[in-house]
Design a protein around this nucleic acid. Sequence first.
DNA 1: GTGAAAGCGCTAACAG
DNA 2: CTGTTAGCGCTTTCAC
Lengths: 353, 353
Amino acid sequence: MKECRGATQKDVANAAGVSTASVSRVLNGVGPVKPEIRARIERAILALDYAPHEGARALVTRRSLVLGAIIPTLNNAIFAEGINAFEAEARARGYTLMLSVSNYDLNEEQTLVRRMVQRGVDGLLLVGNQHAAETFATLRRAAVTHVCAWAFEEDGPAPNVGFRNAEAMAEIVDLLVGLGHRRFAMLAGVQAGNDRARGRVSGVQSRLAFHGLRLQPDMLAECPYTVRAAREAFQRLMGGAAVGRPTALVCGNDVIAIGALLEARRLGIAVPGALSVTGFDNLAVAAEMDPPITTVDVPAEQMGRGAALALIEAIGAGRAVKSTLMPTRLLVRGTTAGIAPGACRGCPCPCSG
Amino acid sequence: MKECRGATQKDVANAAGVSTASVSRVLNGVGPVKPEIRARIERAILALDYAPHEGARALVTRRSLVLGAIIPTLNNAIFAEGINAFEAEARARGYTLMLSVSNYDLNEEQTLVRRMVQRGVDGLLLVGNQHAAETFATLRRAAVTHVCAWAFEEDGPAPNVGFRNAEAMAEIVDLLVGLGHRRFAMLAGVQAGNDRARGRVSGVQSRLAFHGLRLQPDMLAECPYTVRAAREAFQRLMGGAAVGRPTALVCGNDVIAIGALLEARRLGIAVPGALSVTGFDNLAVAAEMDPPITTVDVPAEQMGRGAALALIEAIGAGRAVKSTLMPTRLLVRGTTAGIAPGACRGCPCPCSG
DNA sequence: GTGAAAGCGCTAACAG
DNA sequence: CTGTTAGCGCTTTCAC
C-alpha cells in the first residue's frame, strides 16, 4: 500500500529517452523543446499515466498552489457559503483549499495558523480582525500572504475583504427608529473573541445613541449561534410581563432571529404586530420563514470569491493583499412594522417616517 | 515577501553546534540523543522560532499528514456538518483537511481526485459509491487510502462508512402506509450521478411495491436541493385539482421538505391534515419548522468522525479502510398524520396500525 | 550517541 | 535546443 506511488519523472525521461529536465520543461510549458521530443515525452506521460508530485515541486519552486482558510465553524450556513465560493474561485485558478475550523477559539486558531504555514500554504484566509498577537507574528515572520474577511477597517491589523458590521447594524437601527420604535432589545452573538459580533453590538448601541436612545443593560443578551440557544435566550429576555417589553428586537444574525421568531410564536407574541425582529446575514431560510425575516444581506459568496482572488493576485505580485470593502444591503421584509408611523420627530436622525 | 520563510533545520543545527541529523532526531523523538545535546537543540529551536517544513518532510517520509475530502457542496448543512466533524477528528489526530467541492459533477470530481493525489493526501473521503471509473483507477494506482461515506453497500466499489439510503426510506414508507396512506408522491433529489438520491427513490418504490402500492409516474419529480426549487417543483406536482391528489409526499431530503411545507401552506394545503410530508437528514431547522418535520436522522457527525478515524487507522496499518454501517433513525414529528387509522390491512406488511 | 552522506521528486541554472 | 549539475528541507542508513 506504500510502494506504487505512480510513475516518477525519471521514469518518463527514461521511457522517452531524454533527460528529466526536458520532461520538466514540457510539463511546465517553459523553455524551448523540439516538437518531436515534446511529442515523445507526451506519449510517455500518457503511457505511464504520470502525474507530477506537487509536493516535490512546491519544495523547489516555493509555491504550493494551496490556499488555507481558517473559519470559526462550518455549521453556520454563512461561512459554509463563503468557503464554498472561496474554494470555487481557488479551484478555478489551480489552487486547492486547505481548511481548518477554530470553533471561535483564538488560541486554537493560532496553532492552526502555524500548522498551515508549516504545511506551506501560499495564502491564508482568516475571519474577522481579532486574532492572537502570535497569529499575526507568525504570518509576518513566515511572510505568508493573508487576508481577513467578514470585516473591514481602514487601518486594521491586516488587509480586509469584507464589510463594516457596525454600519450595517446602524441601518437596521435607522429602519426601526424610523418605524417609531423606542424600546429596543438585542440578542447578540457571543462577543468574546468575535469582533464581528462586537461590531454589531456597538453598531446598535452607537446608532441608538445617535437617535438619543439606548439599549437598557438588561435588554442586551448574548447567545451562541444556534436556534435552540436563541429560543432559550429569547425566553429569558422577553418571557416576562408584556408591560414595558421592548417593541423591537435586533438579533446578531439570522439563526438567532429564527430562534426568536419561533419562540415568539410559541409564546403568543405577534411578530411584527407586538414585536419587530431583525436578523443579519440573509440566509436562504430567512426569506422563507413566516413572516420572512428583515435582515442585512451579507455578500458571503462575493467575499469568498473576492478573498481568493485577492490572495492569488497578491501571491503572484509578491505584495500584500489589497483591501476591498464589500457592500451590504438592508432587506426589509415581514418581521418589522411600525408602531406609530412618522413618530420619529424628536431625534436628530435623517429618517423622517 | 518570498525571502524570509523562517529558519531552517540547518540554521538550528548550526546554532546548536550539532548536525542536522541530531535536530531531526529530537524533532521526531526518535533515536538516542544525549540530554545535554537535546537541551541545546531545543533552546536553538525556541530561539530561532524554528518550525519544520512539512512539505519537505512529507517528500521523504511519504506521509503528508493531510486528509482530503471531496464533497458535492458545502451549501447543504448536512455536508457542512459532516465535514466539520471530519475535520475535527482529523485535526485532533494531527492531520489537516484538504477540501474540494465537486458540485455533484462526477467528471469534475475525477480531476479533483487526481489533484488531491498529486498534492499527496494520505487519505481521501468521497461521498457516495457512484464515481467515475477513472476515479477508482487513480486511487488504486496511487494506492491512496480512501473511503466513501453517506452510503453503505456490502460489496460496493470501495470501503464505506455510512448507511443504507434505501432502507431508511423504507422506514418512512412503512410509517406512512401504517398511517393509512395509499396515494403517494415523491419529490426526489436529482438522481443523475447521485446514488444516494437514487437509493432513496428506489427505497420508496420497492417498499411501496412490498405493500402492494406504487408511485404513479407523474407523482415522481426531482429537483435540486434548494428551498426555492422545491417550492416550484411542489407547485407543479401538487398544484392541480384537489381530487386524486396524493395524501403523502416523501421528500428526498429536509431542504425539499421545507420547500414543500412552505409552499403547501401558501397554497392552503394543510399539513398534515390534507397532506403528510416527510424529509430526510434531520437538519436542525427541520425540528423547528411548524409543524416540525418528520424525517430520518442521518449520523452526519458520526460519519464524519468515523470516516476520518477509519482513514487514519487504515493509513497507519497500511491496509484498506474497514467499512462501518452507521445507524439511521426515523423521527416521527408533526408533518405526518393518519388518514384512516388502522387502515392497513390488505397488505402483507408488518405495520398493523 | 553522533555526524556524514545519500536521496525523496522536482526545477533551474548553466554548459554544451 | 538539450543534458548535466546542484540543490529545495528534510529523514535515514551507516560508519565512526
